[in-house]
Design a protein around this nucleic acid. Sequence first.
DNA 1: CCAATATTGAGAACCATTGTCAAACGCGGC
DNA 2: GCCGCGTTTGACAATGGTTCTCAATATTGG
Lengths: 134, 134
Amino acid sequence: MTSTERPAVRPTRQRRAVASALAGFDDFRSAQEIHDLISRQGDSVGLATVYRTLSALADAGEVDMLRNEDGEAIWRSCSDTHHHHLVCRTCGATVEVEGPAVEKWTGAIAAEHGYADISHTLEIFGTCPACLVS
Amino acid sequence: MTSTERPAVRPTRQRRAVASALAGFDDFRSAQEIHDLISRQGDSVGLATVYRTLSALADAGEVDMLRNEDGEAIWRSCSDTHHHHLVCRTCGATVEVEGPAVEKWTGAIAAEHGYADISHTLEIFGTCPACLVS
DNA sequence: CCAATATTGAGAACCATTGTCAAACGCGGC
DNA sequence: GCCGCGTTTGACAATGGTTCTCAATATTGG
């Protein structure tokens, strides 16, 4: 087989529905919530398909996937640069933040101990201004 | 109710077995692995009890619990100072690292956006030197 | 329109984790 | 030592998120 084969990802109704749902909110949601959202929008997409699509989008770097304290995967569309999140633990409001210094630091720490093929997770949780006043 | 009630935690054979197993390694392990380890040590402790004990120890701050990339909980006894981890995703070998700069950075970012009552998670995953050669 | 290939969906399968509840245990008092 | 009581345990069921299976369906290039 020649190595020039295209992935051949097809733009289907289901994938459009997931993308549309993702565009409808800007905080992190579980796959099941996203599935419900799609249903409420009138579309019908299987839960397995939602999972498959979200995973694919995450691999493609078009959505962020992280895990809440219960280990559940939660998802959100994101910008395409590397970044982290400042998340309100009361309302879920999210701010994307960048920290070049942190990236550099993690790389240095890893190198110092001889670790290769590095990845890291960094999330900040707190109470946002809006939730503070109430 | 007076607030002077004692938790009444009893030092049982099972809890000792879990503590002993935790002392036997210094990398992160899943609850099931710890359960296996205990069996291999000759003790017999129910899996549910292992979970209960690990959760209690984590609440007491005597062990760290974090989640690997699959969302599984992994555990390890820890020092009592604030720190993060550099974890080998192949064998689990762990290095505790400190990063005052990072602590400061997260605080600054949070303040900048008006977030209060901050906490953060930061873990670094990679392949350790030993696993690299094989 | 056709054949080839990618995609979907319904439900089963997985599997880590938690709940249930009667039996066993550790403790303090006697 | 022995009792009684509240704590803890363990076997197993139940939960719940996520993935797998595979036949049916949709899309695409020709």
